[in-house]
Design a protein around this nucleic acid. Structure first.
Length: 504
RNA sequence: GGUCCAUUCGUCUAGGGGUUAGGACGCCAGAUUUUCAUUCUGGUAACACGGGUUCGAUUCCCGUAUGGACUACCA
């Protein structure tokens, strides 16, 4: 069983990539890289009705943004192409036919409406309708009809599907890498449709055929596929192929309440559940990690730890470390609730490590838009001073505006608390001292001001908070003398005088 | 309803027959700071329940409860 590792991520292009899908892709990627294998992308677009334009491009772009690109896929190393199932359409029919010939499948003419009625009728009696060994003999198919009539109806152009003939009375002992041994009774399985009346295969057929043809060694997918594992194993058996090994990943659940995480949760609670922003057909859009300012490394790190951990107390990992450490056997079995707070914490961690020059460039775009022109060196210094307060680049401006614009107002509560009747006079006196100070470096203004405070016997508390209020407009921000160095002498004195004037 | 899967602090989790049940996020408090934030220190808080097995179960087994997935000519 030791074939080269080849795993796939096989989404349906029915919309943006959901966060659960992103994690499935990530785990496949990590597993492939860990074993020196191949990670490929296959587009499962066999449902013509659910095709959404742009979804495939979105998936590719998202994977690239996250830094987990595929080795093979549409337009990329097409060793086993095409990688779009719609373009492989012709080859599925012959495999369905092969199963018919070997007695593993049969034609069925029952209409969807009729089956629906049957299901409802049984349900009304508290029973469950299953299209299987117990019922297929009484239904409209090639198992119950004379061969001649079957041929006639097919030739007449009547709609039909091809169903898999689940063997009766068997117990299947299957193995999942994450969940261990699982038992299924084939009597409870239904004869799934393999080939639809529109000439397209269903997921089940296309998936197995392609996984085999593309030499897939491991199928790593979401837990929602666990119930169809027996069907898939049986399909491999029917074809006489070696089945890949299976690993079913736990689901990602809503942060509050019950159930699977959904698109609505993100919109409702204000956090992204998609890697990239997605514009819906109705003109609305769903936010994306990228647009919200999340760093791809942070998203990957957070997602990697949702359902998996290496058994140590380390929490921050580079992609390379993740690749080295990843192990399917250590994947958790139970679903994990998505925690937006921890997600943010990861971003904070990575944001602190982000390059100041890059962040400065970003902030500078914003400054230029507002007609503020500062050298990138200055902007970079400001970024270095305020970034520890930020989790996202988008917060930088609000955190640093006073470096670039004279405060137009003073925070009320701070004023009430720190601005005493004599404060204005004290600050004016200080301004006079600063006028005569030539060296406006942080270190020098600090020693000048502190010496003056001491000499006057005023105490830091009497001067520093009001001074901050005058320069920043609020009691916040980094080391005050660093701010003074950056805004410069003229601006510093100007702000002090303005505050003294406005606040008295 | 049926089938399958799961269950350790609020959340993500480590651990595993004998432990003070460990870490992280969050929250709270303290320290530092001229302020906010960062940082540091400390605190809060968990083995779903009932039966077994055992000298001893949170750990193994069986039930129950709860949660989840699936139950389409969707993937």
């Amino acid at each position: 069983m030791s074939r080269p590792v080849r795993v796939r991520f096989a989404p349906s292009p029915t919309g943006p990539l959901h966060i659960g899908g992103v994690r499935t892709a990530l785990f496949n990627y990590l597993f492939a890289k860990k074993h020196g294998g191949t990670f490929y992308l296959r587009i499962e677009d066999t449902d013509q009705n659910r095709f959404v334009p742009g979804a495939e491009e979105y998936i590719v772009e998202a994977l690239n943004w996250l830094g987990i690109p595929f080795d093979e896929g549409v337009g990329v190393n097409e060793k086993f192409g095409p990688y779009r199932q719609s373009e492989r359409k012709e080859m599925y029919a012959q495999y369905a036919q092969q199963l018919i010939n070997s007695g593993w499948a049969y034609y069925a003419f029952d209409s969807a409406e009729k089956l629906d009625e049957l299901r409802k009728a049984d349900e009304a009696e508290g029973k469950t309708f299953i299209y299987n060994h117990a019922t297929r003999g009484t239904l409209d198919n090639s198992l119950s009809l004379p061969a001649e009539e079957v041929q006639k109806r097919i030739q007449a152009g009547e709609d039909y599907v091809i169903r898999f003939k689940i063997p009766a009375g068997e117990t299947l002992f299957l193995h999942d890498i994450i969940r261990g041994d699982i038992k299924f009774d084939t009597n409870l399985l239904d004869d799934k449709v393999l080939f639809k009346s529109d000439g397209m295969p269903t997921y089940h057929l296309a998936n197995i055929v392609d996984d085999h043809l593309m030499e897939t060694s491991h199928v790593i997918r979401g837990e929602e596929w666990l119930p169809s594992m027996p069907l898939h194993e049986l399909l491999y058996k029917a074809f006489g192929w070696d089945a890949p090994q299976f690993a079913h990943l736990p689901l990602i659940l809503k942060p509050v309440g019950n159930g699977k995480l959904s698109k609505r949760d993100g919109d409702k609670l204000g956090f992204p559940v998609f890697p990239l922003q997605w514009n819906n057909a109705d003109g609305t859009s769903s936010m994306g990690y990228r647009e919200q300012g999340f760093l791809p490394e942070a998203v990957v790190n957070f997602l990697a730890l949702l359902g998996w951990n290496p058994g140590t107390e380390q929490e921050l990992f580079t992609l390379d470390e993740l690749v080295q450490l990843f192990d399917l056997e250590r994947v958790h079995k139970a679903g994990a609730k998505f925690d937006p707070e921890k997600n943010k914490w990861f971003n904070h961690q990575y944001f602190q490590r982000a390059d100041n020059h890059v962040l400065a460039t970003e902030l500078n775009h914003h400054l230029v838009e507002q007609g503020i022109n500062k050298s990138i060196e200055v902007v970079e210094k400001v970024v270095g001073l305020v970034k520890e307060r930020a989790t996202f680049a988008s917060e930088l401006w609000a955190l640093s505006d006073y470096f670039f614009v004279t405060p137009s107002s003073f925070e009320e509560k701070a004023v009430a608390k720190q601005w005493k009747p004599e404060t204005g006079a004290i600050l004016k006196e200080l301004a006079d001292i600063l006028v005569n100070t030539l060296d406006f470096t942080s270190a020098n203004t600090e020693s000048v001001v502190k010496a003056w405070i001491e000499q006057k016997g005023l105490g830091m508390g009497k001067v520093m908070p009001p001074l901050r209020l005058a320069l920043v407009g609020d009691l916040k921000g980094p080391h005050l003398f660093d701010i003074i160095e950056i805004i410069g002498k003229e601006e510093t004195i100007g702000r002090i005088n303005k505050a003294a004037e406005v606040l008295g």
